[in-house]
């Protein structure tokens, strides 16, 4: 055991402020080194001084009440400091989790499945009726330039030039997604026409405005 290890073993158990602990450490080391300089061997010095736990107990018995209070205060401060850090980490992780999870965010779409179904059916009906004015009113401003009969017909013709009469709508599937910090609801639904079955992928923003349309 080196003098440093021996002194550390003592100060570890002394209940006082950090500054006082440092002072005790320096003084004990100084004493031991002075004895070593005087020719005393380390084993003798350690044997003369006693067991680290006994020396620490003696210090604790004799240190002032004020020093003990300082120690308890710093212990409390450390305890609450650790609790505060843990809380901050938990809050930080929770806020990240909230931000990542669409269902938990305050800015996500609060649309119910019924509202999503109704909106989807409304969009499909307006498309089938070629009522682009009404559809534009239900869309984001970025979508408006594309909601014209010419544009939509081009898209329709890309799939088939003869869809036939509209028949029915299949099951509506929806999923909320987060994109560039914004929440969207993406809906996928199959619509049956007389001659073809079309899959619509419709995107709504958090205010349930039409924000995207794709068909195949």
């Amino acid at each position: 055991m080196t003098p440093n290890q021996y002194v550390k073993a003592i100060t570890r158990h002394v209940t006082c402020s950090k500054a006082k602990k440092k002072e005790i450490k320096l003084q004990l080391l100084s004493d031991m080194n002075a004895s070593l300089e005087g020719g005393e061997v380390l084993e003798n010095i350690i044997s003369r001084m006693g067991k680290p736990a006994d020396i620490a107990r003696e210090f604790n018995e004799n240190l002032s009440e004020e020093e003990l209070m300082k120690y308890q205060k710093s212990k409390r401060f450390r305890f609450f400091g650790v609790i505060a850090v843990i809380l901050i980490i938990i809050l930080f992780l929770a806020s990240i989790l909230l931000w990542l999870m669409p269902w938990a965010s305050g800015t996500h779409s609060s649309a119910s499945q019924t509202e999503i179904d109704t909106k989807t059916e409304e969009v499909i009906t307006l498309l089938n009726e070629n009522d682009f004015d009404t559809l534009s009113n239900l869309s984001t401003k970025e979508m408006v330039p594309y909601l014209t009969k010419d544009y939509i017909d081009k898209a329709r013709n890309g799939i088939s030039d003869n869809w036939g009469e509209y028949k029915s709508l299949g099951k509506i599937y929806s999923q909320e997604i987060l994109q560039k910090g914004k929440h969207y609801t993406v809906v996928q639904v199959n619509a049956s026409y007389e001659n073809i079955s079309v899959t619509y992928t419709i995107t709504f923003d958090q205010d349930m405005n039409l924000a995207g349309l794709y068909m195949k």
Binding site: F59, N62, L63
Partner: peptide, 9 residues
Amino acid sequence: EGTLYPILY
């Protein structure tokens, strides 16, 4: 040491 130093402090 555990007796003397607290007295000195």
